[in-house]
Design a protein around this nucleic acid. Sequence first.
DNA 1: TTTTGAGTTGTTCGA
DNA 2: GTCGAACAACTCAAA
Length: 479
Amino acid sequence: MTQSTCIVWFRRDLRVDDNPALAKALCHCGPVLPVYIFAPDEEGDWAPGGASRWWLHHALSSLGEALEALGLPLVLRHGSSLDALRELVAETDADAVFWNRRYEPAIIERDTAIKQALKDDGIEAWSGNAGLIWEPHEVSNQSGKPFRVFTPFWKHLRTLPPATPVTLPDTKATAPDPLPDSLALDSLELLPTLDWDAGFPKRWTPTLEGASKALHAFLDGPVDHYEKKRDCPAEAGTSRLSPYLAHGQLGPRQVWAAVHASGAVDRGAGYKYLSEIAWREFGYHLLVHFPHTPFEALSDAYRRFPWEPDKAALEAWRRGCTGYPIVDAGMRELWHTGWMHNRVRMVVASLLVKHLLQPWQDGARWFWDTLVDADLASNTLGWQWSAGCGADAAPYFRIFNPMLQGEKFDPDGDYVRRWVPELAKLPAEHIHTPWEAPAEVLRKAGVTLGESYPEPIIGHKAGRQRALDALAENKTRNG
DNA sequence: TTTTGAGTTGTTCGA
DNA sequence: GTCGAACAACTCAAA
């Protein structure tokens, strides 16, 4: 007698190792059908942005190869997830669908409905955990409430055993016969039509092999100097694992275990990095417990903040034409590589929401569209933190001084030179403040302010004061 | 029960 | 030049 097929529905867990849904399916005895369904309309206004889709294309290609090696071709579908799953159930006579959970509010709602619908059809529907070390509903403070401050959250996590990676069973699986039709990857049209992504392949290897190499390259060296060098954008001091984590080519459990196995924690280093993994967990904790936060401030006091939306200011920021070199370098790094160094993300965010008084949601949306590591939980947490309106927010008076940040963290100006070539010939002394450079220095460097490079979009002192005034005004309004 | 201290990522000002 | 204080309001846990 033939066994029924089990469908593995891949989503943001585009890997073979440490994949509970795949592992469970391989224990199921019957044929296994891996499927990915591209359903951007179901993402609740957070369909993958352009950079994320570019990565997704390559991640799917890589996953397809890895599954092929197991003898399980990946089937691609497009459109309604429930319809596609039902079609595949019918085509393969499947009796089970397994997947790994996602935590975005719209996806939780969709998946809950799909699970019920499949059960009503008489199909076993099961979801596992591939995306987090500690799931949001397992974690609460002593009052039984969700945490709103990182440090107690992190202290609490350290009292809990971390989930460990799942290993695949040593069983051979077969694909269903006949195999259902698959769309061609290209037909999903995930790659940009204009030539915007030209610089991405130079920076990234968006494959499973690339994920593994990036993890080990980080653990073989940079992790030991992470605490100091992670703030210097000109250096490769950070892990650069975020896009692999965002697409599930690496799971946080794997990263956690690898950091420990590398001995970095025992050497005293590594701990700071693990706390960054915990920040990712904190982002998901907040997203699940406060599901309105991708759209609205967590803090009630910021719901009617006197933002001053200004299309021209927003556009200057997006294009990297604010006249603040460190900010413009960051925005251009983002555009050209789909990624921005974390220190610089804070600086550009501070300028947008404080000096320019633009709604943080506009910045979050631009990051969403342009980051290869776009992740709703981390993006929301980061922007609400910068705007001061979220959990464990930056204090209102923390208004970054873009010149000081540049001088502190890019002292030689190498980061600015790399991404703002029109300033490349300025000496380090003036590279973060070109408007204060003597005329002769500017002339020699070939810089004409207002022509080859803009004047600051707003003076630092004036922008800072306007932000403080808006914050005072907000306090009067709300409270 | 109430109080107290501390909290990712900073800047400015005045001594 | 360096250094400490001040810049809210609220969360959380320990005392």
